[in-house]
Amino acid sequence: MMTKFLELNSHKLKFAFLFISITFTSIVLMVDILASIVNGNGPINRLIVVTVLLTASIGFPSLIVGSVCLIWFNKARNRHRAFQKDPFDKLDRLGFKTVLTYEKTKWYFTEEIKEAEIHGYRVHCDVQRETPKKIDFIAHVISINMTKEIFKKLEKEFKNEDIYFDFDGCLRKIYSLKNTTGLTIENLNDDLKNFVELLRSKGFEPKQK
């Protein structure tokens, strides 16, 4: 897993560390300059200044980047487990392939998820970051303008099908990994086709890349 992480994110890891280091170091230097101005020519404990600078330039960046890496590893492990559980271990039969997310930005670490095209809709499959025992099938759709009343009506109707509105013009169908008894790959295939067709019937057209 470490090898895969470095393969996907080694350049981003360096950027993240340098960006955070420069940011915190600049803040510390500005505070130090302001303190010097306020104190006039008063004595400044250089040992404290050096310690704070080292903490800002190395300590904080290491802690923050390390924490983000742990989150990446934890989700990658949960994703691996989910994609080994029946019927999600057979997603390739439905046309799902491994794709990379956030590949073209330095602000997020790249991850591997599953993607397929279902009746013209681009559908991503991944575990939830906040609830790793649930797996999402996210359909990318074109946002439509709707009144609050229509939104509430659709929200209630979708909830009965375990479908929820998401950010960035997406709708997600959720499956609990704890409750997949009797769910076959054929059932899942039918579910996902019905999912996108329901979205189409409500006026949500597929969003292209």
Rank of each mutant, 00 (worst) to 15 (best):
E155Y: 12
T55N: 15
R77C: 01
S201H: 03
F60Y: 15
L183N: 08
N187T: 13
V196Y: 04
G182N: 15
V196T: 07
K90E: 10
D136K: 08
E130G: 06
D89F: 08
I48H: 10
L13D: 02
Y121D: 12
E117D: 13
I48L: 13
I135M: 01
D126M: 04
F151R: 09
L171D: 00
I144Y: 02
N41C: 01
D89Y: 13
R122W: 00
N9H: 04
D126A: 00
V49A: 09
T181V: 14
N41I: 05
C125E: 08
N74E: 14
L154E: 06
I185P: 01
T110Y: 05
V68Y: 13
H80K: 12
E117F: 12
F88P: 10
L177D: 01
N179H: 04
T131A: 14
F60P: 07
N9R: 08
E205H: 10
K209L: 15
K104M: 08
C170R: 11
L154Q: 04
R93W: 02
D89V: 14
F109D: 00
F158D: 00
L100G: 00
L188T: 03
I58P: 07
G203D: 05
L53Y: 12
K106D: 10
L47A: 02
C125D: 11
D32H: 13
E103R: 05
N45C: 05
E197K: 12
G203F: 03
H124M: 14
D168R: 07
K14T: 10
D136I: 05
T184Q: 14
K12W: 04
G42I: 09
F137N: 00
V28Y: 11
K209T: 09
R200W: 00
T181L: 09
Y175T: 15
I113R: 10
K85V: 08
M30E: 13
N78F: 05
K85C: 06
D86H: 11
K75M: 14
K159I: 06
I22S: 15
V38W: 11
Y121H: 11
S21I: 01
G169C: 11
L198M: 14
Y164P: 01
A35G: 01
G59N: 08
G40R: 02
L100I: 05
D166W: 00
P87M: 12
H124D: 12
K159D: 15
F137E: 08
T131F: 15
F167G: 02
